[in-house]
Design a protein around this nucleic acid. Structure first.
Lengths: 145, 145
DNA sequence: AAACATTTATTGCACATGCAACAATGTCAA
DNA sequence: TTGACATTGTTGCATGTGCAATAAATGTTT
C-alpha cells in the first residue's frame, strides 16, 4: 500500500531494465539485420560457435540463454543458409556437432567488428556510468536460479 | 578484429543486458500470472491507467514502451475481463478513453504491493550496486531516439 | 538381457508479436 | 466548403515463441 497511489511505471526497476534492453537489442539487431540478414538467435549461435568451437544444441542452450527449440530452429536456418553444418557425435549419437563452415567463419569475421563497435558506442554514451551498470548486471546474472 | 577471436557472448554488454532483463521479467510475470492471470502488456496498461487516469491508446503507446497494436489487444482483453472500459472521447472521436472499472481498481490494489515487494527484493539482492545499475539504465533510457 | 528411466533434439500447436493496410475522424490550406 | 493530408485505433498476415509431446539414443536396474 503505502505510496502505491503514486506508483509510476517509469520508476519501476524491472520495467526500466526491460525497456532499456528492448531498445538496445532492437537498435543492435537492426544494424546487422540489414547488412547480414540474420536474427538475434542466429547471431548468438554463430558467435558462440566461433568462441567455443564445435558444440551441441544442449551446450548452446546452457550458455546462451535460449530455449533448446529456439536454438534448434536457429541452427536449422543457419544450416540452410550454409553458415554451419550439423554433424553427429560419434561418442553419443544423440548429440549434434554444430560447426561453422568457411562461409560462416567469414560471416562472423564481419559481424564481430560491428558488435564491438556497438558496444563501444554504448560505453561511450554511458561514460562513467558504464562500470556501475555492468556491475549491477553481473549481480543479477550471477545466482538467479 | 583485434581480440575478436576471444569474443565471449557473456562479456558482451547488449547480451548481458538482455539476458538480465529476460530473467527478471520472466520471474516477475510468473509471480503474478499464477495469482492474477494477466500478462505483462496487460499489467503495464493497468498500472498506467491507475497512475495517469483516463488515457487513450496513443498515450499508453508513448509512455509505456509498447506498440499500439499491442496496447490495443491488451486493452481488449482487459475489457473482456471487466477490468477496464473503452469510451469515446467527445472532443476527438478518434481517441478512446480507457478507464479502470471498480473491479480493475481492486485488481491494481492487489497487484501493486506484489510489484513493490518484487522491486524491494531486487534491490536487496543488488545491495550497494543498485544505485549504479539504476543510473546506467537512466542514461540508456534518456535520449535514445 | 529386458524393462524402465533419462537425455537430446525436433516438431506440432496455440498464442504473441510487429508491420502494413485500413476505416474513421480530424486538420488545414486554397 | 472542398479536397488533400495526418492521426488514431483495429485487424490481417506472416513470423517468432514457449511448452508439451515425441522419437532416437543412452543409461540404469533387476
Amino acid at each position: 500500500m503505502t505510496d502505491a497511489d503514486r506508483f509510476d511505471l517509469n520508476d519501476f526497476l524491472p520495467y526500466r531494465l526491460n525497456a532499456a534492453a528492448s531498445r538496445i537489442s532492437r537498435a543492435f539487431s537492426e544494424r546487422y539485420r540489414e547488412e547480414f540478414g540474420i536474427s538475434i538467435p542466429e547471431w548468438r549461435v554463430l558467435v558462440h560457435l566461433h568462441h567455443a568451437g564445435d558444440v551441441s544444441v544442449r551446450d548452446i542452450e546452457a550458455r546462451v540463454d535460449m530455449e533448446k527449440s529456439k536454438v534448434s530452429r536457429a541452427a536449422s536456418r543457419l544450416e540452410t543458409a550454409g553458415y554451419i553444418t550439423k554433424g553427429v557425435n560419434d561418442t553419443d549419437r544423440r548429440l549434434l556437432v554444430l560447426r561453422l563452415t568457411d562461409k560462416g567463419e567469414a560471416l562472423v569475421a564481419r559481424l564481430l567488428p560491428v558488435a564491438m563497435e556497438y558496444q563501444d558506442e554504448m560505453r561511450a554514451r554511458l561514460g562513467p556510468l558504464a562500470a556501475g551498470l555492468e556491475a549491477g548486471l553481473s549481480a543479477l546474472l550471477s545466482d538467479e536460479a
